[in-house]
Simulated scan of single mutants.
Amino acid sequence: MKLHELKPKKGSRKPRRRLGRGISAGQGASCGKGMRGQKARSGPNPFRGFEGGQMPLYRRVPKLKHFTRVNPRRYTTINVGKLAGLEANTEVTLATLNEAGLINDAEGPLKILGDGEINVPLQVKAEAFTKSARQKIESAGGSCEVLT
């Protein structure tokens, strides 16, 4: 095989369309672009995202880094440090904390946060725990049970 014998594979190279060269050429008159309008004109088409004069999507959506959640999950939170005042081996739930006066408004499920220190073993039952809260409760000899 020599350099002058090289050819592209049959069917891989197509001739370019010769637009507007008469009806027998197949692309005469309107060149396959329809009658008139912005996309039939010579030159580039409208920019990407153009919606025909309608307010485009990228301008309709909020300009924030994130969208707010429609139904956010709101927890009743309490820190581990506030649980340190309870007696040993007490069962801690949302109802018992409300009775003890440690929380004022029980609006949602209970979540235990890890701020503060605890050295009393407690049986805590809540819907969610932070890693540090779980670690502190278990290192004090207590247990964490996740409710669903």
Rank of each mutant, 00 (worst) to 15 (best):
N98C: 03
G49T: 10
C144G: 02
A126H: 06
G28I: 06
K2N: 12
R69S: 10
L147R: 11
G101R: 08
F50M: 03
S143N: 11
D105V: 12
A106W: 03
P44D: 05
G108L: 13
K131W: 00
F47V: 09
K10Q: 15
E51H: 04
L3E: 10
G32R: 02
T77M: 09
K10E: 14
P72V: 07
A29R: 12
M35A: 13
R73P: 02
L147K: 08
R69V: 14
P15I: 00
K125P: 00
E107G: 14
I23A: 02
K39Q: 08
L147P: 04
I118W: 02
N104C: 01
P8L: 13
E138K: 09
M35G: 13
S24P: 00
E91I: 15
G26W: 11
T76C: 06
N71W: 02
T130M: 02
G26R: 04
I78F: 00
G81P: 08
T148N: 14
M35W: 05
A95D: 15
E127H: 15
G22V: 01
F129K: 03
S143D: 08
L3N: 14
R41S: 04
K111P: 07
P44A: 11
M1V: 09
G49W: 12
V80K: 05
R21K: 11
K10G: 04
N119V: 02
G52R: 02
A140M: 00
V70K: 14
A88R: 15
E87G: 08
A88M: 05
V80I: 13
D115P: 02
G32H: 03
F47G: 08
A40Q: 15
G22P: 00
D115S: 15
L64I: 02
T93S: 11
N71G: 01
A40E: 10
A84T: 12
G85E: 11
V146A: 13
P8Q: 10
F50G: 02
L3M: 11
A126Y: 06
N71R: 08
T68P: 12
K14M: 07
N79L: 01
P56Q: 04
G141Y: 08
F129E: 02
G28T: 00
